[in-house]
Amino acid sequence: MRSIILISITRLMMPMLLMVSLFLLLRGHDAPGGGFIGGLMASAAFCLYGLAFGFQKIKSVLHTDPRVILGLGLLTSLCSGFLGYLMHKPFLTALWFDEGFFNGVINLHVGSPLLFDIGVYLVVVGVVTGIVIAHAED
C-alpha cells in the first residue's frame, strides 16, 4: 500500500534533502552544520524514501551495503588523520590547501577537517540506513 502523494513528494524532496545535507556538510566549518548534522539530514532523506517505496529499496539507491559505507566513513576520517603523519605532524593535524605544503599550488580554503567531516557524514548515513534496512530485510 503505497501512497501516491508520498511517492511524488519523495521524488521531489529526496534530491533536495540530499543537496541540503551536502550543503550543511560543506559549510559546517564556518556556520551551523557539519558532518553529523549533514549525515542525519541525508539519513532522514533515505528514511523518507524508505517510507515511500519500502525500506528494502534503500539498498538499491545506495548501490552498496550500509556496512561498506560505515567502513568507508571510518576510513575517510582515519585518512584525514593519517595526513598528519605524512606531513610529520601529529595525528589529525588540520592541514589546509592554502597553507603550508600546498601553499600557492591551489588556493582553496579546504582542509583535512572537511575530509574528517565527510567520514562522519558517511558513518551517520551508514548507521541509520543500516538499521532501517536490517529491520526491513526478510
Binding site: G33, G35, L74, L92, G111, V120, V124
Partner: peptide, 29 residues
C-alpha cells in the same frame, strides 16, 4: 581557520573524540 567554533571543536580541537564517537556509532550499527 573556521568560524563555527562547535564544528572546529568537533573536527579539529577534539577530533579524536569525534573519531571515537563515530566508532561507537559504527559498532552500534
Amino acid at each position: 581557520r573556521g568560524h563555527n567554533v562547535v564544528n572546529v571543536i568537533l573536527a579539529d580541537f577534539r577530533a579524536i573524540d569525534t573519531l571515537g564517537e563515530i566508532s561507537v556509532l559504527t559498532t552500534a550499527a
